[in-house]
Amino acid sequence: MSKKNSEGAGLDFIESPEALAGQISKAETFFRKNQKLLIGAGAAIVLALVAFAGYRFYIDGQESTAQVALSNAVYDFEADSLQRALNGSGGNEGLLGIADNYGGTDAANLASFYAGVSLLKQGKFDEAIDRLKSFSSSDLLVEARAKSLIGDAYMEKNQPAEAISFYKKAADYKANQFFTPIYLMKLGIAQEKAQQPKDAISSYKRIIDEFPLSAEVVNAKKYMGMLEGQVGE
């Protein structure tokens, strides 16, 4: 076929009844040959849409129920009744039950955070780590806080290397002048305990350079000065 004929093929299709009929015939032939496949694909799409709509309806219902349960558990948490908060009381579900029974809801996710904090306060460090690791948030403060708490749990377990990893994540998550210096101070202390004095100096220096108005600057300067004397800097 010449270049000219090829360029005119689209126009022929629009203007010529014979060309249009030929295209329709081809489409009919293709449908007859692939009828089962096309119907199956269409049914699969419909089922997927129905399943998604059903899942959203189910999750929305679960969310409402879980939020009510969570409000009761958080009340106990804030009253420092940690055992009641974790396990529930008076027919109300506790944080552990909400986190486990309402998966996929925001309430279950937040329950994991509260449960992790409660377990950490009780000295149940491994359980606290598991709960806090299952929590995630885009919130400026809470996500970093969760990482820092995991670091605290590892420090309590005398595992500074693991703590360092989570303190770094906390310090690097959406840095701000209020909480980042605290996480950097914890990071420096963990690095000292892990026999990483030069890394600790860098963490303390970051506080001094990037957050000069923070309350942590005084201790950062003191600790950095002592370490510099030890490493000969």
Rank of each mutant, 00 (worst) to 15 (best):
A200F: 00
G61T: 13
A200M: 02
Q62S: 09
F13P: 00
L110G: 01
E143I: 00
I14M: 12
S81H: 11
N92T: 11
A215E: 14
T105R: 05
S89T: 13
G40A: 15
S2Q: 07
L149H: 02
A170E: 10
V217E: 02
G123R: 06
T105N: 13
A115Q: 07
E162S: 13
Q67G: 01
I129H: 05
L119W: 07
S203C: 02
A48E: 08
A146W: 04
K169R: 13
F77H: 12
Q35G: 00
P212C: 06
A66S: 10
S214G: 04
F52T: 12
I208G: 02
I45D: 04
S202Q: 05
D80M: 07
G42C: 04
Y114I: 06
G123A: 08
K4D: 13
Q196G: 01
K124I: 06
L20V: 09
F179Q: 11
A69W: 01
G8P: 00
D100C: 04
G123D: 11
M224I: 02
E216V: 05
Q177H: 11
G104S: 10
A171N: 09
D12L: 13
N72S: 15
S138V: 07
L49H: 00
G229T: 15
A48L: 15
F13T: 02
L132M: 13
A41M: 13
A9G: 01
K26P: 02
D80S: 11
I45H: 10
N34Q: 08
T180Q: 11
Q195C: 00
P181K: 09
Q230S: 09
S2M: 04
A51E: 09
I208Q: 03
D106N: 15
F166R: 03
A175S: 15
I207M: 05
P212F: 02
D126K: 12
I207T: 07
A66K: 04
F178M: 12
I45E: 03
A161W: 03
F77I: 02
S25R: 15
S71D: 14
E7Y: 08
I189R: 04
R32H: 07
Y58S: 09
G103L: 14
E156A: 14
K186S: 12
P17F: 03
E216T: 03
I98H: 08
F178R: 14
S16W: 05
I189P: 01
G229K: 15
M224E: 09
N72A: 14
L47R: 00
I150F: 03
M155F: 07
I189N: 05
L140I: 12
A41P: 02
K36M: 07
A146C: 06
I14P: 04
L119G: 04
A53F: 12
S118E: 04
S118T: 15
I164V: 15
A220H: 08
Y167W: 07
L47E: 00
I201N: 00
